[in-house]
Amino acid sequence: MDERPNKTLKISAAPHLASGASVERIMRNVVLALLPTTGFAVYAFGLAALLSLFTATLTCVLAEHLLCKLAGRPSTVKDWSVVITGLLYGLTLPPGLPLWMVCLGGLIAVAMGKALYGGLGYNLFNPALVGRAFLQAAFPTAMTTWTPAFSADRFTSLPGSMLAPPFGTPHYDQISGATPLAAMKFEQTLSDTVDLFLGLTSGSLGETCSLLILLGGLYLIARRMMNWRIPAGIFTAVILLSGLLHLSDAQAYPSPLFMLFSGGLMLGAMFMATDMVASPITPLGCYLYGVLIGALVVVIRLWGGMPEGVMYAILLANAVSPLIDRLIQPVAYGTRRSKDS
C-alpha cells in the first residue's frame, strides 16, 4: 500500500553531494522569500488581498489534509509545500475576486493539480497554475476584472464583488482599472517602467512589484534553493525576442523592459516556472525550458488574443519538461552517444 518515495534514494546529476536540504526546509525558505511580495500585496490592495490570500492558503491546506485522509495516506500538510501552492495561487488572483471562486480554484489546484497525480513529487503541472487556469476558463469575466490598487479606503472596506454569495454572480461597485498589459494591447498606451518595477500599477495581487519578487528570488538563488538557470533562460528569451521586435518596429512592439516588468512574468519566472517537480532536471534542460517559456510569453502577449500569457506558457512548458529531459540525456562518462539515436 505504501507508495511514498524512498527517502534515501536521491536522483540527481553528479556530483552527489548532499546539502542537508529537506523538502520542509526549502519550502519554509520559499515562504520566507514570498513574504515581501505578500506584504506588498496587502499594502497595495488592502483588506481584499489579505482576505484572498488567507482564504486561498487555508483552502489549499485543508484540501490537502482532507484528500490525504481520503486516500488513506499520512497527511503531507507539514512539509509546507501546500502552503506555497496556496500562497502562490492566491498571489496570481485578481484583487476583488469573489471568495467562493478563490475557494473553488484552491480546491481544484490541490485536487486536480496535485492529489490526483499522487501528491508532491508526482505532479505534472504547477498546482497553483492549474487552479488559476481553471478559474480563467470557467469565469473569464471575473478573472479579468481588476480592482485598482492603492484605493483610499482599501484598509477599511472590502470590494463588494468579494462577498458574492457562493456560486453567485459578483457585482462590481468600482470602475476597474486596466492592467499595464491590457492597456498596451487594447489601448496602445505604455506604462512607466519605474512604476512597473516598483509595483505602482494594477494587476493580480502579487505580480505588481517586480523589485520585491526579484529580491525574494535572489535570496533563494543565493541559498541555492532555486535553479537560477530557469529564470535566466526566461529573461534572456524575453529580452532577446522582444528586443529584436522593438528594434524592428518601435511603434508596434513595446520595449524589453516593459515586457520584463509587466504582468506576471517576474512572479512566474521566479516562483512558478521553478517548481522543482514540474521543471526539467538537467542544467541544459532548464535553460531550454526557460527559453521556451520566455518565447511563448512574448508570442502570446504580442500576437495572441489575450493580453497576458505567462500562465499558459508555464503550463505548456511543464507539459513538455519530461520530453526536454529525455532530449538532453547526459552521456554517461566513457560511453558514446550512438549515431542512430
Binding site: 481553471f134 476558463a137 470557467a138 473569464p140 456560486f167 453567485g168 454572480t169
Partner: peptide
C-alpha cells in the same frame, strides 16, 4: 434549475469541461 444569480462555469461548455 439553478437560481438567477448563478455564475455560469463557462469552462464546462468548452472542450476542456468535457475532459474534466
Amino acid at each position: 434549475v439553478l437560481p438567477d444569480g448563478f455564475e455560469k462555469w463557462v469552462v464546462m461548455l468548452l472542450p476542456a469541461g468535457g475532459f474534466f
